[in-house]
Each structure stands twice: as structure tokens, then as C-alpha cells.
């Protein structure tokens, strides 16, 4: 006589219980404190975007930036004796923007329009415009625009990932560095490769290179700046953007510039070695 239980759904006869491995004890959140005079390690790669004339990709911690350069492209319309140059800096729609709250995205109407459009907003926010023009101002002196009459050069910077805590100036700094590498990749004639540095001065006069988060700023920061340089062109300052809590005197200003120069030279060295390596790899 068959005594199999037909009323219940039984598992296969050789079934065994799932056994989970013992859970690892959670390691304490060991956030290594970066020494004040060091830059965080970065990852650089050029030429990932194949349909652009030049492109660069950069990762620093949780910040990921991608830049594509289009140009020199012919323009329609009347003759111009030098290329027109434009930069567009954009956060991808899901990336939270620093200082979003202060610059309310203008009005409710534009917000409503943005939410009805699946691709997010159609126009740039105030912060995006500001960083766009900072990158444009920084790169403009280096490009030999008069070599390209009747053409336009466009740079599109996209922030693919970013921490909400990331400082606005820090982001601008990496965006400039990445854009100038993309410009080199595009083969557009330049006077020099622009690199920038980001420095925060503390109340006791110390300088922190590449400060990533805003958290210490309120506590101990007195002033910070991102300054772009043409390092091999008499260290000319091509872009400067400072934020300070109180008054900004000359000594603070020149020390900000000096330390940013130091950082920009370190980044320049990294960019140079990357470019040399990529030339060797091509051979």
C-alpha cells in the first residue's frame, strides 16, 4: 500500500536545509583620513567615446566625470576668423547637485515642465551654468582658436556619479582637469595643457589639498579656491574661483594660489605620465 502523503506539497525527498555562512562581524567604518598634502588617487582614460573627436573619463572616489570634445566642426552662416568655443557641463538626471537647495530651480513652472519630461530638465541649472563658464574661462586662453576659422569647438562634460556631500569647487576642479585631457585627446592645437588645483585654508594657516567634502568647511575652513594654471606657460592663472567665510586678504589669496599651483603641478605630472604611457601603448 502506498502511504505517500498526497494532500500536501512536499519538497523533493533529498532536499536539505539552506545553511548560511556565519555573518562577518561588521567592520567599523574605517574612513582613512587623507593627509592634507596629498591628492586622492584618480583613474584617467581617454578615447572611450568613439564618435567624439576627443574624450576623457575620470574617476576620483565616487566622482565620475566623462568629457567629449566635438570639433573643429564647420559652422553654417557667415564667416568667422576664429573658432567659437562652448562648454556645457551637465549632471545626469539622477545625480544630486551640490547646493541645489539654495538655487531653487527658478520657479514652479520649470520644475513642472522638468517632471513631465522623462529626460529631466531641458535647460541647465544655475550651478551647471556656473561650472560651464568656469571651465570655458579656464580653457579659452590655452586653445589656439585662430587656427580654426569658420569652425566651432564644443565640449560636453557629464557628471555620471557624484556624492551629495562633494564640494562644488572640488567637482569643478576635476571637471577642468578632465576637460583639458579630452582636449589633448582631440588633437586641437593648444598652447599648454590646463590643470587646476583645489585648496582649503584652515584658520591656523594650514592648507588642505583636494578637500573632498563640505563637512569640515564650516568647522575649520576659512577660505577655499580652485585655480587653473598653464603650468608650462609661465604658470599663468587661467581660472580662479574662491569661496570664503569672511574677509579674504592678500596673504590668504596668494597662499591659496600658491598651494593650488602645487596641486595643479602634481595633476599635470599625472596627466603627462598618462599621455606618455598611452603613446607607448599605441606603438
Amino acid at each position: 500500500m502506498n502511504v505517500q502523503d498526497r494532500r500536501r506539497l512536499l519538497g523533493p525527498p533529498n532536499a536539505r536545509l539552506l545553511v548560511f555562512g556565519s555573518r562577518q562581524p561588521e567592520t567599523a567604518d574605517t574612513q582613512t583620513v587623507k593627509p592634507a598634502d596629498e591628492i586622492r588617487p584618480m583613474f584617467l582614460k581617454t578615447g572611450l567615446i568613439t564618435n567624439a573627436n576627443g574624450s576623457a573619463y575620470l574617476e576620483v572616489d565616487n566622482t565620475i566625470i566623462s568629457v567629449s570634445v566635438f570639433g573643429p566642426r564647420p559652422i553654417r552662416g557667415s564667416f568667422i576668423d576664429r573658432a567659437s568655443f562652448a562648454v556645457e557641463f551637465k549632471f545626469l538626471p539622477y545625480v544630486s547637485q551640490p547646493m541645489e537647495a539654495i538655487f531653487e530651480c527658478h520657479n514652479e513652472a520649470s520644475k513642472a515642465a522638468a517632471s513631465s519630461n522623462l529626460n529631466g530638465r531641458s535647460s541647465l541649472t544655475g550651478i551647471e551654468h556656473k561650472i560651464s563658464s568656469f571651465i570655458e574661462t579656464s580653457l579659452l586662453p590655452s586653445i589656439l582658436l585662430e587656427k580654426y576659422p569658420k569652425s566651432s569647438i564644443d565640449i560636453f562634460v557629464t557628471v555620471i556619479a557624484n556624492d551629495a556631500q562633494t564640494n562644488l569647487l572640488n567637482l569643478a576642479n576635476w571637471a577642468v582637469n578632465c576637460s583639458s585631457l579630452a582636449l589633448v585627446d582631440s588633437g586641437i592645437e593648444c598652447k599648454d595643457v590646463v590643470t587646476s588645483g583645489h585648496v582649503r585654508l584652515t584658520a591656523n594657516g594650514n592648507a588642505i589639498l583636494d578637500p573632498a567634502s563640505n563637512s569640515e568647511r564650516k568647522a575649520e575652513g576659512v577660505a577655499e579656491a580652485v585655480v587653473s594654471f598653464m603650468n608650462y606657460h609661465n604658470n599663468e592663472i587661467v581660472g580662479i574661483w574662491t569661496e570664503s567665510e569672511g574677509a579674504l586678504d592678500e596673504t590668504n589669496l596668494s597662499s591659496l594660489i600658491e598651494h593650488s599651483k602645487k596641486m595643479s603641478r602634481q595633476i599635470r605630472a599625472a596627466v603627462n605620465s598618462y599621455m606618455l604611457e598611452s603613446v607607448h601603448n599605441d606603438d
Binding site: F85, L140, A225, N234, I240, T242, L248
Partner: peptide, 16 residues
């Protein structure tokens, strides 16, 4: 006070 920013006022012969 801040801002202490630079800006290109013309689009020709911008220098550092």
C-alpha cells in the same frame, strides 16, 4: 570677500 573669480570679458586674445 568671496567671490574672487575670473571671467573672460572678451572672446579675443584672452590670456592668463
Amino acid at each position: 570677500i568671496s567671490p574672487f573669480n575670473n571671467i573672460s570679458l572678451s572672446d579675443r586674445e584672452v590670456k592668463g
